[in-house]
């Protein structure tokens, strides 16, 4: 008995309380959310600003060579001048036009092709290897041929962007379509859904989150392809501005171009994000979004 009691006390000494209590997030949900929002926004804005300040400080201290790297202050001055003369706008306009046309065409063909290949076994057997083989061919290598085959200056550039986007969208959509859980297919089939209804209401809906991930990837690839081809085969556009400035050794002007491209990429990605929030409402509350 005494032994049992002693053991009891031992246990008591070892015991520790595991608590489940509200944290700051639960105690004042609104304030916590506001605080988190503020912290996140400050980080998003603060990190680039700090980097810019370091850049400028480096130039002033002489550790960064102004001839190659410019400086934030002179870059901004150059940008203002380019905007005043309208040069930047006209280049931007040319690039945005090619980007949207190419991206739109690539997406409009790529998604249906991928999803349809996902539905039809024989089509998949026929085209999937080809798709994968062509995907790895560097598209920029097609530029000389396209320049020869297609009339005009815009056609080849737009086509190139469209091709790059097409492959990413088609391959991702195909993979997404193939991952439709059998349970959902069975549900739709048990309601005797037609192939089209199955496709639209189940396969496409289920693939949407992945399609959006692919849209983001493709937006980056589209900008990359556009700038690359403007380097070599255009006399307008942001890519041309960058290349042209560099060959004239105008570092500041080149950075204006590079930063414009970066901003274009950010804006593009943000637009897709907005579209995603509207198109995939069910993804908002589902899953773990990280809270570290």
């Amino acid at each position: 008995m005494a032994l049992a009691e002693a053991e009891q006390r031992d246990h008591a000494a070892q015991a520790r309380m595991v608590l489940r209590e509200p944290g700051p997030q639960e105690r004042d949900a609104r304030r916590w959310q506001q605080r988190r929002w503020l912290i996140e926004r400050s980080l998003a804005a603060g990190v680039p600003l700090v980097l810019l300040a370091l850049w400028q400080a480096g130039v002033w201290a002489g550790t960064i060579d102004r001839r190659f790297f410019g400086s934030p202050v002179t870059v901004v001055q150059t940008a203002l001048r380019l905007i005043e003369t309208g040069t930047l706008q006209s280049h931007l306009e040319a690039s945005v036009y090619r980007l949207l046309m190419g991206y739109g065409i690539g997406v409009a063909i790529g998604i249906p092709v991928g999803l349809v290949l996902g539905q039809i076994r024989l089509a998949r057997a026929a085209f999937e290897p080809l798709l994968n083989a062509l995907y790895v061919v560097p598209k920029l290598a097609l530029l000389p041929i396209l320049l020869l085959l297609l009339p005009g200056r815009e056609g080849p550039l737009i086509t190139l962007v469209a091709v790059a986007v097409f492959f990413i969208m088609a391959i991702s959509s195909l993979a997404a379509a193939l991952m439709t859980p059998a349970g959902y297919i069975d549900v739709a089939r048990s309601f005797t859904a037609s192939r089209w209804v199955m496709f639209r209401r189940v396969v496409f809906a289920n693939a949407l989150p992945q399609i959006f991930a692919a849209l983001r990837l493709a937006s980056g690839a589209a900008v990359l392809m556009l700038v690359g081809s403007e380097f070599v085969a255009a006399s307008s556009g942001i890519g041309y501005l960058v290349w042209h400035s560099w060959s004239l050794f105008l570092a500041d002007q080149m950075y204006v171009g590079i930063i414009t491209i970066a901003l274009l990429g950010v804006l593009f990605s943000a637009l897709i994000g907005v579209l995603e929030r509207f198109s995939v409402p069910w993804a908002a509350s589902e899953g773990f979004k990280g809270n570290g």
Partner: peptide, 24 residues
């Protein structure tokens, strides 16, 4: 809430964990 997957909005829940070597 008991499992620690979700926190309560208010109130407390205490589990007396006797053996630190084992999961609660």
């Amino acid at each position: 809430i008991v499992a620690g997957l979700l926190r309560p909005s208010s109130g407390t829940l205490a589990i007396r964990a006797a053996d630190p070597a084992r999961p609660t």
